[in-house]
Design a binder for these strands. Structure first.
Lengths: 369, 369
DNA sequence: ACCAGCGCTTAAAGCGCTTTAAGGCTACGA
DNA sequence: TCGTAGCCTTAAAGCGCTTTAAGCGCTGGT
């Protein structure tokens, strides 16, 4: 029932305080100038009237908007986490955030336009899919920070995690637990998977396990993970409770040869890991008893009590802070050369990894609950 | 490198087209008035300059902002879905949406304030947690639509799904598959759980299965679901491959007595269902072979190939459309009496429900793959 | 006495767009 | 020929705030 006496305007506050709108404006924004008496009068008046500055008017009048525009895939939990941290970081530096969600009907281009219409001073693009050329073009006219993606576009700042290091962390963790036969479930074609795979290969090599390297085809979703379970022959794991113990046989998609079954698997991401896990558990393969599994992303799903997946975190807080920092450096400190910030991910150890069991031991058919 | 020659202003377009800003403005917004020649000239000029209206300026000048403010929990996938549909619905009616995300550091109150600062003409609150009194107070000054929550606050429009009907749909589906012993895993205290439980009880009664009613304590997350699996004695399911077949024994949290094990379970929500499912599958209980499971929310997780959970959908598209409709009715059609729209949910049948097996049959220990 | 300098306050000019009311045309009927 | 209705077009007044530059009353140095 907005039969509003229309929200109070700055003028109302000013006249009630017996000063000019100029003074009121200054006081309300905590600017130096007005004397103590004026200050108090204005603040009182504002309080009494329940005054809140009209944002559109402020934005229009102010030369600077102090607005950072963020495009995000609203259905991505990772983006959601990032957003939280972006808000916090922006807050600290006196910036505000405008969110422009990507949906079926609103692609990235349109989302960016909306942000520009709001006169955002910098664009923070979460996992942008715009082609590099377009990013570069955008960057000619505006400050743009690409987050979570390795962009080869001139002029744009990049904040991303060192995916290869992340996978290496996972491998090291597993090796520390006594595993040698560690497989990698590859992701969908693209720069991210390439980097992660590379991280895996190099880590294995560095640890003297080059021969034990095994990369199987995979993908970015649960089905890919489930398929990988089969490709890795993990489903033929000894099952004392079943009659048949089929030995691993040929015909694998492995890109590198080795006949043992892996005792640990690093998956391209959590979704693939989840599919893998699910398949294993349904088939009675014990995780982490028989096989250890590590995911990537440290997504909310990995943290679910029933999943409890060891995973590599892209440390959203750090990325968010770095991104806002990058933007404010350009806006406030006049930086003009683009930067690429590569952050070290961290491993979050949970319940799907454990020490490798002596291979001579077999499952006894009685599960620990 | 925004060394901008500053984006073109309306004035630039106008002068290039050789007309006044007034005409240009009219043309660009498709308003009647300007003649064909003027139209063309303006459109050409705008195109050549790559003109886009400055939103803040438009908003300020326009009496109406045509803005709908949405508060959402950005980490909720359900909210994310709703948002997509809200965008679409708003688009159709010529409104625009401003998103104000709730985060750790930004509660609902603050989110609403932000929206008001942008001069949103109506507030669409997704699953608001504000106390009724506060909602009512808000509604005195603004148009507010609460989505997905049963609000007893004067003046606010409510759009929600009929949760009792949703659960009833699930029960009916199961009964249609031959199930009689259908249990309900309760949710966390609150109006939603009450309604769903009620729906369950009434449906069972209506179908002549009052005696088979069984409500076990639960909760809104995976752990609650896992615990319910134990409470329902489902874990003692005959396992030919194991030595022990423990019969259901006493000490249950059941609120209603019956000694058979349920052959089907309806869970308060998908998360609880997921916990239940996970526990069952890990214990070798076949779903849907041994037990059918239905969730609630039709969340993304339910749709994952590896979960494939039969679930009740709150039909976000319909809720979104209804919510925008409610808002525009107030704004454009002058409706002033609050409405409560209760939508019928729909059941999405997936792989976790199947016909009840004859109880005399037992699992043969050989799984179909 | 006078002017410089300081501290505070404010009038007024925007910010970029919308909108209203007034003005200029043309055409047509009287 | 004049009046007037109708159609376009535009000057100008905002929208609610910020900001600049000018103003005002003091103090203090010379």
């Amino acid at each position: 029932m907005p039969s509003r006496p229309s929200r109070p305007r700055l003028e109302d506050v000013a006249s009630r305080a017996g000063v000019s709108t100029a003074s009121a404006s200054l006081v309300l924004r905590g600017r130096p100038g007005p004397g103590a008496a004026t200050r108090e009068a204005v603040l009182d008046a504002a309080r009494e009237l329940g005054y809140r500055a009209d944002r559109t008017a402020s934005l229009l009048a102010r030369r600077r908007t102090q607005l950072l525009g963020v495009t995000m895939d609203v259905s991505s939990t990772f983006h959601a986490e990032l957003l939280e941290d972006l808000q916090a970081a922006a807050d600290e530096r006196g910036y505000d955030i405008v969110v422009s969600p990507l949906t079926r009907t609103r692609d990235e281009r349109r989302a960016v336009e909306t942000l520009l219409d709001f006169r955002c001073e910098a664009l923070l693009l979460l996992g942008p899919r715009l082609p590099d050329a377009e990013l570069a073009a955008l960057a000619e006219e505006h400050h743009v920070v690409a987050i979570g993606r390795r962009a080869q576009a001139a002029g744009v700042d990049v904040v991303r995690a060192a995916d290869d290091v992340g996978v290496a962390l996972a491998v090291e963790h597993l090796v520390g637990l006594g595993h040698h036969d560690i497989a990698f479930v590859d992701g969908p074609r693209g720069p991210i998977a390439t980097l992660r795979r590379q991280g895996y290969r190099r880590a294995m090599k560095r640890l003297g396990l080059a021969d034990a390297s095994l990369v199987v085809e995979g993908g970015g979703d649960e089905e890919a993970g489930a398929a990988a379970a089969a490709a890795l022959h993990l489903l033929h794991h000894p099952q004392p409770s079943r009659g048949h113990v089929a030995p691993p046989v040929g015909g694998r998609e492995a890109t590198s040869g080795r006949s043992r079954m892996p005792s640990a698997v690093v998956a391209f991401n959590d979704r693939a890991a989840l599919g893998l896990l699910d398949r294993l558990r349904r088939e009675g393969v014990d995780v982490p008893g028989d096989v250890s599994v590590v995911g990537y992303d440290d997504s909310l799903i990995a943290r679910l009590a029933t999943v409890d997946l060891t995973s590599v975190s892209q440390i959203p807080e750090a990325m968010a802070t770095a991104a806002v920092e990058a933007a404010t450096q350009r806006l406030d400190d006049g930086r003009t050369e683009p930067v690429e910030l590569v952050l070290e991910p961290k491993l979050v150890v949970r319940g799907t990894t454990a020490a490798r069991r002596d291979t001579t031991t077999r499952r006894d058919g009685i599960r620990a609950d």
